[in-house]
Structures are given as structure tokens and as C-alpha cells.
């Protein structure tokens, strides 16, 4: 039961464009403050911790842990319920919203704090970061 229409794709703005350029290369990247070393999510053009404008776009490891999640049972454009909407905590610290893929969308298959790694999926003409459980022993 998918609702009509494709998944909505993000449109970059000047402050976020490097994020979406990185995902198109298969990389997860965030601005990092040169003064206080804070990783900044969502991307901004200054550091909200120390107000410095000196930022460096930094490629991240793509590793994360499952901080919290819901299983959506209502349809959304382009999504077949049930599907998982999650908050993941990136290895570098910030938390972001995503979907968990590559695993059954059931409470039994999803455990808080489980290890995840980023994957990229084309949505419209944009590569969107999603996360799947880390392959253990591989």
C-alpha cells in the first residue's frame, strides 16, 4: 500500500550543497568547526557552538548506532509500510534522521544501539543516506 507519487527528494541550498555533493560521491560529510572541532548537523554556514565561521567540510566514517526508531504503519509517498524511520548517532557524534534498510522492519530485528553503516540510495536525482546493520564477521 504505497501512496501515489514518488519519494520526495531534497533540494540543496548553498549551506547544504557540499553535503549532497558528498552523498553523490558515496560519502557522508559534515562541516566541522576549525576552532572548537564540533561536527555540525544539520549543515550550517557557521558553528552554533562558538559562532565561528571557519568550517571545514569533513568526510565521516559512515558508521553509526541506532539511537531510536519508529516503525511507520501509515503510507507515505513512495514508501511501503511498515518501514523504519530512525534517529542514528553518527560515530563522530551528531544525530540525524534516516531509514534503516536491509533488515526486517520489526521490533525483533532492531535493537537500540546496534551498529549501523551508511548506504546511499537514489531518490529523484539525489543520493540519500540510509543505514543498514553492520555485517558481522565479514
Amino acid at each position: 500500500m504505497t501512496t501515489a507519487g514518488p519519494r520526495v527528494a531534497p533540494i540543496a541550498t548553498p549551506d547544504t550543497a557540499p553535503f549532497w555533493e558528498a552523498t553523490s560521491r558515496g560519502e557522508l560529510a559534515l562541516p566541522r568547526c576549525r576552532s572548537c572541532l564540533t561536527y555540525i548537523f544539520y549543515p550550517r554556514s557557521h558553528c552554533p557552538s562558538c559562532f565561528s565561521r571557519e568550517l571545514d567540510w569533513t568526510v565521516l566514517s559512515g558508521m553509526a548506532s541506532l539511537h531510536s526508531f519508529v516503525i511507520a504503519h501509515l503510507p507515505a509517498p513512495g514508501f511501503d509500510p511498515p518501514y523504519v524511520i530512525a534517529i542514528v548517532e553518527l560515530a563522530e557524534g551528531p544525530r540525524m534522521m534516516t531509514n534503516i534498510v536491509g533488515v526486517e522492519p520489526s521490533p525483533e530485528s532492531l535493537e537500540l544501539d546496534m551498529a549501523l553503516q551508511v548506504v546511499f540510495e537514489l531518490q529523484g536525482d539525489v543520493m540519500v543516506p540510509r543505514f543498514r546493520p553492520v555485517d558481522e564477521g565479514k
Binding site: V8, P10, S68, F69, V70, A72, Y83, I85, I87, L112
Partner: peptide
């Protein structure tokens, strides 16, 4: 920012986002 960093993941308003802290 919602359109870029939340909506692409199939959010459907409060019903899909506000319960996100319950399991934590």
C-alpha cells in the same frame, strides 16, 4: 531543512516523528 533532512525519509507529520523518542 525539514525538506532536506527529514521528509526524504518518509515522514508524514507528527505521527511519524513525535514518537521517535519513545523507545530511547
Amino acid at each position: 531543512m525539514h525538506g532536506q533532512f527529514e521528509a526524504p525519509f518518509g515522514t508524514t507529520g507528527p505521527v511519524s516523528m513525535l514518537p521517535l523518542n519513545v523507545l530511547r
